[in-house]
Simulated assay, not measured.
Amino acid sequence: MSRIAYVNGRYVRHSEAAVSIDDRAFLFADGIYEVIEIFGGKLIDEAGHLERLNRSARELLLKLPVGERALKLILRELVARNGVAYGHVYLQVTRGVARRDHFFPKAGTPTTLVAFAHRSDRAAAEAKAQAGIKVISLPDIRWKRPDIKSTSLLPNVLAKQQAKDFGAYEAWLVDEEGFVTEGSSSNAWIVDADGALVTHPADSGILRGITRARLFEIAAAHQIRIVERRFTVVEAKAAREAFITGATTLVMPVVAIDGEKIGGGAPGPVALGLRAAFHGFAPASE
């Protein structure tokens, strides 16, 4: 089966999908995106992702090209046409095609909408969770609005590659005061000595993760306390457990930070328990 993508009103072969080299995303990274999990052929936490897409658009003064109902139909059509039972759908909206100029294009310039779906290896993901991942810590050099899910991800890409070069999966970003903000492509968590989940407050310093938000509901159901506060790398290394969250990783245990083992160097029961409970709480699309 050929993969099918959506580009500005048309479903096309993924290999033939294209946008203009004058698109603002290509020239300025002037766009926003979302990644939504597909589980059992359903879109997980779709409402939260689309709400965040709308928020990002408002913050960047960017007009979405279609309404929510139409967007939902497009996403479902992509899942169906690509036959994806387990995987992810990616959608991106840009300020459109215009002559290269830092000023916004003239009023009425159509925005660009691109989306595609792809499969993921569930067995490989579960094996990774059972083994746990390693992270490294790096200075957070991103712009000051990571709460907007912008396509401007060069600092994230550099951090992710540096993690890979050090044999790790993720990089935890550290602000000028020495506090962990989040991962290059995930939210960061620790389990403190009292068994509470600790994560950075959802202010403009981090992305308001949809999976992160769902964990509040799961934790409450399991009588696990969540504390939104900053924590340092030193505190993280001394924690009972650590983990990351995101639409592509769900709850993924961290077993080492900067080469130092966390919680004995094996995934802990809290992180694995939250991961196992996730799809029992996360709403699936109709």
Rank of each mutant, 00 (worst) to 15 (best):
K42R: 14
A124D: 06
S184R: 01
V198E: 12
E51S: 11
A276C: 07
A220C: 08
V12D: 15
L138M: 15
T199P: 08
H14G: 11
P155W: 01
D192K: 05
V191T: 06
A125F: 11
G268R: 09
R229L: 05
A25K: 05
N156I: 01
F39D: 12
L64W: 06
T181E: 05
V157G: 02
I32N: 00
R99I: 12
N54R: 01
H102E: 07
A168R: 04
A47S: 14
I206H: 04
S56H: 00
R100S: 09
V79T: 11
G83T: 10
S137C: 14
R52A: 01
G108R: 12
R3Y: 13
L153F: 05
G259H: 05
I257M: 02
A98S: 15
A193C: 02
Q161W: 12
L91I: 03
E16V: 11
G263E: 07
I262W: 09
I262A: 11
R13T: 11
I210Q: 02
R10N: 13
W143R: 08
A18H: 13
F26R: 09
P267D: 08
G183H: 10
H279P: 00
A123W: 06
I190T: 01
Y6S: 14
W189S: 04
I36E: 06
V93H: 01
K261L: 12
V234P: 00
I206R: 03
A202K: 11
R81W: 01
G9M: 13
R225K: 12
H49V: 07
Q92V: 05
R275L: 15
D101G: 12
G87E: 06
L207H: 03
V234W: 08
A277W: 03
A196R: 13
V254A: 00
Y86I: 02
H279T: 09
S137D: 07
A18N: 12
S120C: 13
R212A: 02
I244P: 01
K134Q: 09
I210G: 03
K164Y: 10
S186V: 14
F103V: 10
T181D: 10
G183M: 08
D175W: 15
F104V: 06
P269I: 12
G265Y: 04
L73Q: 12
Q92D: 02
S20V: 11
